[in-house]
Write a protein that binds this DNA or RNA. Structure first.
Length: 835
RNA sequence: GCCGAAGUGGCGGAACCGGCAGACGCACGUGACUCAAAAUCACGCGGGCUAUGCCCGUGGGGGUUCGACUCCCCCCUUCGGCACCA
């Protein structure tokens, strides 16, 4: 028998598809479009199992949707700027561009070996000038709208990467890329004003029904909006105003002290020339040396020092001490907080440590907290006490009333505060998009005029001897003339964060060769948004937040009609082996190459989709892979055994005249039912739930049913029902085609078909064929299964109940009991409740 | 600490709206084929018991219901996010 040999047939069909430019995106503006996109990779040179998983998911969807009749856009590109290329250059003296290009070639070959159906005509590579010039163009658009600006600020510095990082790129004090400890550094840097979009980024999460809840919650937390009030205290000794932000203006009467961040400008002013000056200065210096994690860790003990100065509470004129504290952050709010120990647990512990007074101003409904010392802060709602004219008011109302009272006197206002910071996009590295800015001694900061774009990244540097900011060393790049006055000027030498590239690449795919704009309106209006985006959860905040920001900005600029870039998002789980992430050090790495070599791409694709639902983590199992390979061989063998059914092919093919077919017997009816059940389940599982694992198991069941049929069927019956059986076998190929594209293409052609199976339209199921004459119904007594009955499917409830009562064992359970109640679920169950 | 997700056979997982828990696959066992093995095909496969049947069983405890993996309350464990955010 003809053996299943993926090593031979996979390259054969890959070549065929390539030759016929098979996966080119169609021009069919009249057809419904569907844009499937997997997060494009960094060209590291090798595919890993995480890649294989995300591409397999995307490819099944793309192939399925094409068969469903959609005009599908399924492109691939390269997130090609970034540190590894530069580091390779520094370590091995290779050219980053060449290094990147050869990696791309290698990964592309691997992707093709997986049988992925990309439209390579739309391939894009972010490190090529024809892409990154539009980064610069978009940057200038931000700049002209006042949304790109430069400021001196304390920023996150990664010593290993020798550059700064955006807040999103620091994970609990460590660099997201290399896990080095990040330290603060004061630098003049470019920022994008993402905070202007805080509310829209937060509120529009509601529009994203097709996103996993957890991703939306992570973004919500990251933006961190909280409603409260600004309240202005006054420093008694100097008369300085001292604003604080609080979410609990209702507790203002409970303030017993104030705390300033060590970096707060008032600290020095209040202590200068006082006996405490030396002590405080030492404390502040110690704080500024301490790393961010050490200072902001929840475990770190709160430390406070009295400045000697006092603040006047605007609501009652009370004087309270002002302290400096390690736990107050200059970067949030005003860098000063009011201490209300009775109603904030942190303040409570702090006050107890330093013997500061604790004053209850909110009472719970059932208790008077003022009678005895508190054990812990009371943070829940209640009624205001010890609060002058506000006494007796509900505290929620009190928030509004007190803020209004303060506002009237110019000492407070409602305020919405966010955790989100502006996006720091400068990087002190070489392999990135040059920021198109020129500094002129006379004209100041001058944007590069649009017609001068792109500002090309110089090539041919010897990076091995350069420590940082290579462009600073490149005289010919640095020196230029001012576009305004023509005088000598110098260029900005920082490059852009690579997340800039990935924030809009999905838009470029709609018009990748456009040289007049990032992309034209019409293809954008047709293709955008991405209908289904697929990628790792690690970008829940980073890339996915930045992309949403870009989309909203470009919407405001009239470049796109959409407000959200990704209609549906699938955050796929990680690939583990033996309970641990695959890693060289653990020696548990399995590569796509090995799998393709040993079993073929179809087996690998099938396993990675079968082992687990896509959004869950997957545990790699070599045995499981073999099981999937066995299934493909089993399917293959089924066709080899019965290939005779297709030869000679009936002239009408599958669309043949059904009337001419013989009446199906019970076995054929059962097989037909199994086939339509499989069509229904596979369609539903792919389309509605992305549960490829259960879709595949449904195909397996169908194959099992077909084996079962042939095992029992007479030769003569097989001959008689050959058209029907051919149809069943072909349905297997069609259903399996998105998962195992090579094998199915081969079998399809072996069946005598000339067109590709991937051009076949997806079958629809016949509800009538799913109907059964007889069903098995469960009979319960008091909710416990006591028997099964075979009954006609269309039995009435009364008849069903009657049949259930007739069941021998059920009868014995009913003996001498009183029937209290009966429940019948047609075609499923009867429950008889007795006493 | 706060927020979120998840806990089901020896393993990966299934069970859509509250209706036979364990589909499908792996592992394992039995049989067929074979001189034999592999491959393949067929069958079996949660646990217990006084076994034609009965009892227990979806992290633990309670509840709602004729009936709960599924809904409600409390708790435990694991993973993820945020982490002194005022």
């Amino acid at each position: 028998m003809n053996e299943y040999n993926p090593k031979e047939l996979e390259p054969k069909w890959q070549a065929y598809w390539q030759e016929h430019n098979f996966h080119r995106t169609g021009d069919a503006p009249d057809r419904a479009k569907y844009y499937v996109l997997e997060m494009f990779p960094y060209p590291s040179g090798k595919l890993h199992m995480g890649h294989m998983r995300v591409y397999s998911i995307g490819d099944v969807l793309a192939r399925f949707l094409r068969m469903r009749g959609f005009n599908v856009l399924h492109p691939m590109g390269w997130d090609a700027f970034g540190l590894p290329a530069e580091n390779a250059a520094m370590e091995h003296g290779v050219d980053p561009a060449e290094w990147t290009d050869s990696n791309i070639a290698a990964m592309k070959a691997q992707q093709n070996a997986l049988g992925l159906s990309y439209d390579w005509e739309r391939e894009l590579t972010t490190c090529y000038p024809d892409y990154y010039r539009w980064n610069q163009w978009i940057f200038l658009l931000f700049y002209h709208q006042g949304l790109a600006y430069k400021k001196k600020a304390p920023v996150n510095w990664c010593p290993r990467c020798v550059t700064v990082l955006a807040n999103e790129q620091v994970e609990s004090g460590l660099c997201w890329r290399c896990s080095s400890e990040v330290s603060p550094r004061e630098l003049d840097q470019w920022f994008l004003k993402i905070t202007d979009y805080s509310d829209r980024l937060l509120d529009d999460l509601k529009l994203l029904d097709g996103w996993p809840q957890r991703v939306k919650i992570m973004q919500e937390n990251w933006i961190g909006r909280s409603y409260g009030a600004d309240i202005t205290f006054t420093v008694k000794e100097t008369g300085d105003e001292m604003p604080v932000f609080t979410t609990r203006p209702d507790t203002l009467f409970g303030v017993t002290y104030m705390v300033l961040a060590p970096e707060h400008p008032l600290v020095e002013k209040l202590t200068r020339g006082t006996p405490r000056e030396e002590e405080i200065r030492e404390f502040v210096q110690k704080m500024s040396r301490e790393s961010e994690i050490a200072r902001t860790s929840a475990e770190t003990e709160k430390v406070g020092l009295f400045t000697g100065a006092h603040a006047i509470n605007p609501v009652n004129g009370e004087e309270v001490p002002i302290l400096v504290g390690n736990y107050v952050l200059m970067s949030y709010g005003s860098g000063a907080v009011m201490g209300v120990p009775a109603h904030d647990q942190r303040d409570f512990l702090f006050a107890r440590k330093y013997q500061l007074p604790i004053r209850v101003v909110i009472n719970p409904p059932d208790k008077d907290l003022t009678l005895q010392p508190l054990e812990a802060a009371y943070e829940d709602p209640g009624m205001m006490v010890n609060s002058g004219s506000f006494n007796g008011m509900d505290n929620e109302e009190g928030k509004k009333a007190l803020t209004a009272w303060l506002a009237q006197r110019g000492q407070g206002a409602n305020r919405v505060m966010y955790r989100l910071r502006d996006w720091l996009i400068s990087r002190q590295r070489y392999w990135g998009t040059p920021i198109p800015i020129i500094y002129c001694a006379r004209c100041g900061t001058v944007p590069v005029p649009e017609e001068d774009l792109p500002v090309v990244l110089p090539t041919g540097l010897n990076l091995s001897r350069i420590q940082q900011s290579p462009l600073k060393e490149m005289e010919s790049f640095m020196h230029t003339t001012c576009p305004r006055c023509g005088q000598e000027a110098r260029r900005e030498t920082d490059t852009m964060d690579t997340f800039f590239c990935s924030s809009w690449y999905y838009m470029r795919f709609v018009d990748p060769q456009c040289d007049q704009a990032p992309f034209r309106r019409e293809p954008g209006d047709y293709w955008l948004p991405v209908d289904q985006y697929i990628g790792g959860i690690e970008h829940a905040v980073l890339h996915l937040l930045y992309s949403r920001f870009f989309t909203k900005f470009l919407y405001d600029q009239g470049l796109v009609q959409i407000q959200e870039p990704f209609q549906r998002l699938l955050a796929q789980g990680m690939v583990y082996k033996d309970g641990a992430k695959m890693s060289k050090s653990k020696g548990n790495v399995v590569t796509p190459d090995e799998i393709i070599e040993k079993y073929g791409a179809d087996t690998g694709r099938l396993f990675i989709l079968f082992a687990s639902p896509p959004e869950k983590d997957l545990d790699w199992s070599d045995r499981g892979v073999e099981g999937c390979h066995r299934f493909l061989r089993r399917a293959w063998r089924l066709f080899q055994l019965h290939i005779g059914l297709f030869q000679p092919l009936p002239p009408e093919g599958r669309q043949g005249n059904m009337d001419a077919q013989p009446e199906p017997g019970p076995a054929e009816l059962e097989l037909r039912r199994a086939m339509h059940a499989a069509i229904k389940k596979v369609t539903y599982d792919i389309e509605e739930r992305f549960n490829f694992n259960t879709a595949i198991s449904a195909i397996m069941e169908l194959v099992n049913s077909i084996y079962g049929y042939f095992n029992l069927a007479e030769e003569e019956a097989v001959e008689r029902h050959r058209i029907f059986l051919g149809e069943v076998l072909e349905t297997v190929i069609v259903l399996l085609a998105p998962f195992a594209p090579h094998l199915c293409e081969e079998l399809w052609h072996q069946c005598g078909r000339r067109e590709s199976v991937h051009r076949e339209s997806w079958p629809s199921y016949d509800a009538a064929a799913l109907k059964v004459e007889e069903v098995e119904v469960v009979v319960q007594v008091n909710g416990k299964v006591r028997g099964h009955i075979q009954v006609a499917a269309d039995l009435s409830e009364d008849e069903l109940l009657e049949a259930a009562r007739e069941h021998e064992r059920v009868k014995s359970y009913l003996q001498g009991k009183e029937v209290v109640k009966t429940i019948t679920v047609p075609q499923k169950l009867v429950n008889i409740v007795v006493r």
